[in-house]
Simulated scan of single mutants.
Amino acid sequence: MNRSAAPANPCEQALARWCERCAPLPLKVAVAYSAGADSTALLLAAHQRWPGQVVAMHVHHGLQAAADGFEAHARHFCEQHGIELRVERVQAAHETGQSPEDAARLARYAALARMAWDLQADCVLLGQHADDQAETLLLALSRGAGLPGLASMPELFERAGVCFGRPLLDIPRSALRTWLLSAGHAFVDDPSNTDTRFTRNRIRAVLLPAWETCFPGFRPMLARSSRHAAQAQRLLDELAAIDLAFTGAPPQIAHLQSLGRDRQANALRHWLRTGAGVAASTAQLDQLLDQIAACTTRGHRIHLKVGPGHVERIGERLAYTPAL
């Protein structure tokens, strides 16, 4: 096929819009490049926008035999297009009680952050798109998530001191693949993406087609719901900051008791997340609120396991004690 007749890469306009909203012109851009369709389209758009400033970063998870082939394809593709490539190999095997998906995701982000630090990249771009956002929201709903979960994936976030961006959240998977095929660009298909033992893959294979049948063009609607949830969470965070300025951090128990139960819960969630990096479950938070309400004597004890440590009473305040 004559590539000059191919339509424009849909990632190019998405990348331009994302830069207007989220980020100034960077000096060096890294793209998380799996060699799959989504990251291939993003890598080409970034290379077109910032020629000579883009580095592809490929993480070899070591979890399947096809991984060596992914790396080989990535090396050939980047050499073909004159794009610098960095590769890091990780051991992403999951521990007992940890899902394989979570283990691979954590290992991947850690590797990307290390490479970004080494490259002194201003931002790492990720190829997650509108279908990924819809899957994330449906997965959060199935788990009874609160607003942080329903907010799904942000366009811009920081992890391990590295800026990460998702410029493709408004573009459906089909648009990316259609463009790549029409333009004649090669990419790989990860066989694990069709393994329905994984919850996200079942959502992709069963729920998304059903939603498309019932509600054609549903993806922007779900994305809008996620943005509303994110906005509401930002307002709750602002309220929590106001309340913690009153109660102190760690919070004084008597000052907490002067707030309504919902505001107590919001302030405690914020304190635990920002101060200790842990999230209390709904059941744990309800127990903690009950213990705070019952704390009317000097000798009353508060002690509750949250995450790897405990929330407890020390004097007139709460404290979070990490596990030894």
Rank of each mutant, 00 (worst) to 15 (best):
F164P: 00
P209W: 09
H76Y: 10
D189L: 14
R234W: 11
Q128E: 07
D286F: 01
C78I: 07
L304S: 03
Q53F: 05
A8K: 13
Y320N: 03
S152Y: 08
L324K: 14
G127K: 05
L150W: 11
D38E: 08
D102I: 04
A92H: 02
H47M: 11
Y33W: 09
L141I: 09
E158V: 14
Q231N: 07
P51D: 04
L256P: 10
V29S: 10
I83L: 14
L63F: 01
Q120E: 12
M57Y: 07
H310C: 14
T40E: 05
T282C: 06
R273C: 05
L288V: 04
V90F: 02
Q291M: 14
I203D: 01
G149F: 12
T247Q: 09
S4I: 08
E88R: 15
P26D: 00
H129Q: 13
A41E: 02
T282L: 10
S99D: 01
C78P: 06
T199L: 14
G184W: 11
M57E: 01
T297M: 12
F246K: 09
P250K: 10
P216N: 03
A151G: 13
M221E: 07
L15A: 06
L181M: 12
S174Y: 03
G307P: 09
G62Q: 00
P191I: 02
G184D: 05
G165I: 12
N201A: 01
V59E: 00
E79S: 11
H76N: 11
L235D: 08
P220C: 03
P26C: 05
A183S: 15
D68I: 00
G149W: 12
A72Y: 03
L176K: 08
Q120T: 05
C123I: 11
G260P: 06
F246S: 07
P251Y: 13
C295F: 13
Q48D: 07
A46Y: 10
Q91Y: 03
T282N: 09
L208D: 00
T247H: 08
S99N: 00
A240W: 09
Q64T: 00
A41W: 12
A240N: 03
D132M: 05
G52V: 12
P209R: 08
R261F: 11
Q257A: 13
R234H: 13
D102V: 06
Q264L: 11
V162L: 07
D68W: 02
A113L: 05
R173A: 11
A223G: 11
R224L: 15
A107K: 04
T178N: 11
P51S: 10
R17C: 13
G149R: 08
E71C: 06
Q64M: 06
H300I: 04
D286Y: 00
G127D: 01
I253Q: 09
Q13Y: 06
V87H: 10
G149H: 10
T136R: 14
R317P: 01
E238N: 04
S226F: 08
S99M: 03
L236D: 06
R159A: 13
A240Y: 09
R263D: 12
N2K: 11
H185Y: 15
A67D: 12
W50E: 00
R273N: 07
R269C: 09
A45I: 06
G82R: 08
R21Q: 15
V54E: 03
